[in-house]
Design a protein around this nucleic acid. Structure first.
Lengths: 230, 230
DNA sequence: CGCGAGCTTGACGTTGTTCAACTAGAGTGG
DNA sequence: CCACTCTAGTTGAACAACGTCAAGCTCGCG
């Protein structure tokens, strides 16, 4: 496995320009050496909440569900797509994963040794600043999600999720969802049955058409309105 | 105002040891010069969501409500006590406050010019790493709050808030709440009437005694249990 | 004394979940 | 090729959780 030829970090540069730009050539080389490319199949677990975070992961391809585990219920924190990191939150905080993550669809990641990663921050303040920027972006997204999940009603929450899938994940008004109704419900923090009922309403109002998992948004502005109103 | 004698940053060192320790003597001096001490009265606004974040604030005394503003509803993100920063989330991200903050009770802060602050990070990677540690701690707290607010029922949420007030704010089982029932409701994201009803239940079960705003916790383990169960 | 803010209570309506039953399509084994 | 099963999707009815509304209460303060 390890013998296989790896792509170079420079190949990933487009995905991760802001970070890679901050690094010296030497650091890029160090990064290149201290990483492993790993493929995960749909459903496989990338990291477990509470486990030692000996590495940071960088998503190259696929879609990753990041969630909190608890005896009773799980909560999806976010869905990460290529170009995002997993495990940054563990840096300088005991190196324990603060969440679990699993692959929504087949996914490729680079695993980077977390000590190496930390050293790069400590050696290169500009890189550290970039990491701060990334963390801050993530915090703002989390605040947004906190607002959406606590202050909006089901219709608004589902409208949010649909818009998010369309804009940030599939980049199209017409897309084949990779996920089940149940998973949609977990994303919007609502019962599967409620997802179905509200999708039906959206369909009846002509906001979307729906055929199995293929969804087309006809009135994005109406969805946005529903999302705003709660 | 500016002529008044300021305390030195070294006086604050106990409050902020992890950060101050990372700075050189020169940097502490720079910090000392580029800051202003400001007092806010209960209810006054420290920063407005969307406004330019020309400075970071460090809380010296008091209690600060950090919240998202929206046409309809506000959402309290967290309550910050002395030793915490306000505005770190704006660093390297356009310098716009991502949330509003107001004083729950009379509050003293140091305002630090955000350019100075950024330069300190860029000059001193160890300091940057400390900021990353602080941000990560905040993220984990936010995830926790996200879980609590979305997955737990009213009883669990209120139990959480009571425990939090007791442990993190007042550091006592018996304390005088500084906040109204309405504000308690905003903290737990529930109606004022629900707060009152549930407090009454807790009282009737002998979990707490309640006299106006004075609250004493008799069965903290029971509260924790309620919080866990949701 | 009277006013207003915070607090309290009960009645009622809404929202959203749970449960149970049913359908449709996709393997699977005989 | 046909029953069998399994999962995802769907529907309706009952129910629980919570918020809203309206009214009354209390206490500090001008």
């Amino acid at each position: 496995m390890n013998e296989r030829q790896k792509t170079s970090c420079m190949v990933c540069k487009e995905l991760n320009r802001p970070c890679v730009e901050k690094l010296t050539m030497d650091q890029v080389e160090t990064l290149n050496v201290n990483r492993a490319e790993v493929n995960f199949k749909k459903g496989e677990v990338l990291c477990k909440q509470g486990a030692f975070a000996s590495h940071i992961m960088f998503i190259r391809e696929g879609l990753v569900k990041v969630y909190l585990e608890n005896e009773n219920k799980n909560l999806i924190l976010k869905v990460k797509s290529p170009g995002y990191y997993i495990g940054l939150n563990s840096l300088f905080r005991g190196n324990v994963f603060t969440y679990s993550a699993s692959a929504f669809i087949d996914t490729k990641v680079c695993m980077i040794d977390s000590e190496t990663f930390k050293n790069m921050i400590l050696e290169n303040a500009t890189f550290g600043a970039e990491i701060i920027r990334i963390l801050n972006k993530s915090i703002v997204q989390t605040y947004d999600r906190l607002y959406n999940l606590t202050q909006k009603h089901l219709h608004g929450r589902l409208a949010d999720i649909i818009l998010c899938l369309s804009e940030h994940i599939h980049h199209d008004h017409n897309f084949q969802m990779q996920i089940t109704r149940k998973e949609l419900g977990e994303l919007a923090s609502m019962a599967t049955e409620s997802v179905i009922r509200i999708l039906k309403e959206f369909k009846e109002e002509g906001i979307v058409t729906l055929n199995g998992r293929r969804l087309e948004i006809h009135k994005p502005e109406r969805l946005r309105q529903i999302s705003e109103l709660g």
